[in-house]
């Protein structure tokens, strides 16, 4: 039996993350990076946001989204280092990229649970 390969799963998560980054990230960035801090739109009050962020559905959605975004980012950056910057220490690059994504995923779980 051949060893199960992780590569197809990573590519799948890369694609999922690419879709999330293209469809969901722009509006979140518009609101939280620009519109609310710079007061283009008056920021929603804390109680409302707390209710939205603390809702189990939001928590599950954000968890899924952040994790695939992190894998997407790690996977793409890995190939940027290989092909763009011609770094050939392949194993080290892969471990660093996916390792960072894994640490990010754990941080995501901790942060989301703290806000629930």
């Amino acid at each position: 039996m051949s060893r199960p390969r992780v590569e197809p799963l990573v590519w799948l998560m890369f694609s999922g993350g690419g879709v999330m980054a293209a469809v969901f990230l722009p509006v979140l960035v518009f609101m939280f990076a620009f519109a609310f801090p710079l007061e283009w739109i008056s920021p929603p009050d804390h109680d409302h946001l707390s209710a939205v962020v603390g809702h189990p559905l939001t928590l599950l959605f954000l968890l899924g989204m952040f994790v695939v975004l992190l894998v997407h980012s790690a996977h793409r950056f890995r190939y940027t280092l290989y092909d763009g910057l011609q770094i050939k220490a392949k194993r080290t690059v892969a471990v660093l990229c996916y390792g960072t994504a894994a640490v990010g995923a754990i941080t995501t779980v901790v942060v989301l649970l703290s806000a629930a």
Partner: peptide
């Protein structure tokens, strides 16, 4: 391909937002 770094930045940024809302 470098957009990947900035996607990661926004994940961190949004997590900081969620964390702050969760605190107070």
């Amino acid at each position: 391909e470098l957009s990947s770094i900035f996607v990661a930045w926004f994940v961190g940024f949004l997590l900081a937002f969620v964390y702050s809302v969760g605190r107070s």
